[in-house]
Simulated assay, not measured.
Amino acid sequence: MSTRPEIPVGVEIATAWAWRLLVLGAAGYGLYWLLSFFSEVSVPIAIALLGTALTIGAVDFLERRGLPRLLATAIVVLTMLSLFFGLIALVGQQLSTQFYDLKAQVIEGISQIQDWAQNGPLGLSDSQLTRYVDQVQDAIRTFGETAAVDQLAAVGTTLTHFVTGFFIALFASFFFLYEGNRIWAFFVALFPQAAREKVHTSGETAWHSLTSFVRATVLVALTDAIGIAVAAWLLGVPLALAIGVLVFLGAFVPIIGALLSGLVAVLVALVAQGPIVALFMLAAVVAVQQLESHVLQPFLMGRFVAVHPLAIIIAIAAGITVSGIVGALVAVPLVACLNGIVRHLAAEAGAPLQEDGLPEDIPPDADTDATPEPA
């Protein structure tokens, strides 16, 4: 009579977890593939959710003051559109007036580098260096002319996708602001009756985390943009307003976004004003980053969103790996929402979490691996 071989308990537990994790991973990959396939719709919807989280407070405020919600939504949407296009007009005006001067300064700087390389301590020969420098100068002179002709089809396709996504995000934002509660109620009704209450409360918690994250991020981004743009203006760096807008947009990717966009300001200062001004610009960027890292991020993100900086960095890296810039933009809000849902469900189960992630009935310095002593 054959007997069933005895399998260690640890192996049984590991295999039980393994197949479940495989199923979850397959489901997650399937969802990612679906969202990527419909990216022309899913990305604008995600941007619309972020915009709704930012402006929903203004709509609620106007409604409490007696305006019909439809009118309040229209006022907020039109105001945001006016600010958006006004900012684009200001940046475009600055680019049109200063970009060609900046190109001339770049060409002059290249010529100075060429003279230094030939007559300075390097003593390089004339022929090869001159050929390479002439190629770079020609490329800079013709930038925006031949490139536009050669890539007209690609630019047209990209512009079409952008316009389509813009209108999808615009209309989605309008209806999210106007009747988001009805849309959410329809979504909750798709779940079984027994699960609807937890789905509804988890969604409310996730929405609270998302609105807190977006508002905190806007404050951080605005501080970074003003600080770096004012420093660029005081140092006489060209395109100060455009740099401020770039920093503001880049700061929506926490921790690294404003730093990378701030380095653009350092590069422009190096090209236009030389290494001394570039060093001052770099010092200003570092000072703004220190303010963000040690004051704004701990106070705003830690207090309102409760996401650890290490989790933010890992989420950004994973988002960039999976979906590039869009992934970096969406990763941290997604982590903030998941963090809020986990804490909410833990509290519903009777084991609310502390700031360090442990249940409240376990002190932070407790030895969780210790074996209880027999009575």
Rank of each mutant, 00 (worst) to 15 (best):
D224S: 05
Q105L: 11
N339C: 09
Q94S: 14
A221E: 11
V220Y: 13
F252Y: 11
S261F: 11
W19R: 15
L282Y: 02
G324D: 13
I88S: 13
D369K: 13
I56P: 00
P374S: 15
V214P: 08
E373H: 06
P364A: 12
A318V: 04
G244F: 15
F85Q: 10
A89E: 03
E373T: 06
A58N: 08
R131D: 13
V286C: 13
V264Q: 00
V245T: 09
G86V: 10
S42M: 01
Q193V: 13
A48C: 10
F166P: 00
T371D: 12
C337N: 10
V271M: 07
L129V: 03
A185D: 06
A232I: 15
T15V: 11
I13S: 07
H308N: 01
F248Y: 01
Q289P: 01
G227F: 09
T160R: 06
I140P: 02
A318D: 01
S261C: 10
A58S: 10
I226V: 15
D60A: 08
V9F: 15
P5V: 12
S125Q: 03
S42H: 00
R303A: 03
A189W: 05
F162T: 05
G340W: 09
E373L: 05
V218G: 14
H294K: 04
F166T: 07
T205F: 11
G92F: 11
A232L: 14
R196K: 13
V106F: 10
T130Y: 12
T79K: 08
T146Q: 09
A221F: 06
I226Y: 07
L70I: 03
V286M: 08
A206Y: 08
G109A: 08
A117G: 12
N339V: 05
W207H: 06
V59Y: 10
I140C: 06
I341Y: 00
F99K: 12
T321L: 09
A375W: 05
V106A: 03
A375G: 14
Q94P: 12
P238H: 14
L62K: 02
S209T: 13
Q112L: 10
L260I: 10
A265G: 05
I47A: 00
F191A: 06
R69M: 08
L279D: 02
I312A: 06
G92R: 12
W207A: 04
S39V: 00
T371N: 14
H200Q: 06
L71E: 14
L334P: 00
E355A: 12
L219E: 11
V163F: 06
T73P: 15
L239K: 15
I312E: 00
E292Y: 15
L249T: 11
A225G: 09
A240Q: 02
I88M: 02
F252H: 13
A206W: 10
H161T: 11
A351R: 11
A153N: 04
T142N: 07
W184A: 09
A251T: 05
A27K: 04
G236V: 08
I313W: 05
G302M: 06
A240D: 01
E40T: 00
A189P: 14
Q93Y: 04
F175C: 15
A231E: 10
V218K: 06
S202K: 08
